[in-house]
Amino acid sequence: MREKLLTHTGRSAVLLLDNVDTDQIIPSREMKRVDRKGLGEGLFAGWRYADAGARVEDPEFVLNRQEQTGTTILIAGKNFGCGSSREHAAWALNEYGIRVIVAESFGEIFHGNCIRNGILPITLSAEDIATLASVTAPADLTVDLVAQTVTCADLPGWQRNFEISGFAKKLLMEGLDPIALTLTANDEIESFFKKDAVQRPWVYSAA
């Protein structure tokens, strides 16, 4: 079971760049083991450290600023998480403590990886993101997954709804294991394969 996510209130950090790719989120050289763990330290390593090898932090990078301590929400631009499919990006964000990412759009594979790892990706308009980013940082946001709303303590009266698929919502809210959930349809799967083997026999001869 994963940690459930129903509502979340946390500090946000603004990383208002477009096309932040997964190579930036977790550089390849930070993926040192065949493991999902130990990646938080490598998060944004190319930007976060003045010297990544020696782990000397760059004080200019947003997450290193003192007022950003305990950040759990990222506010980003367009196409966040594009590029490589490496799920390590979601694992690194998760281990660092990020629970929600608000962006104008997301890389497709990364979006799914977030949901499977207990991170809620929220898509808002460019205008809404600019509004959030204009708050003299760091803003505290509250995300209500049940009601599908985002509010901001520093913007009284400001509230936005967001879209999320029913399935993603269920996975995040219940912290479910998708494999176990799929296997509840095992009978349908079995009968599909039986029928398909007759219709497309060439698919069933070993590679």
Partner: peptide, 12 residues
């Protein structure tokens, strides 16, 4: 293969 929740499908 069949429908899944939230408008998704199971694909072989």
């Amino acid at each position: 293969v069949c429908d899944s929740e939230g408008g998704a499908d199971l694909l072989a």
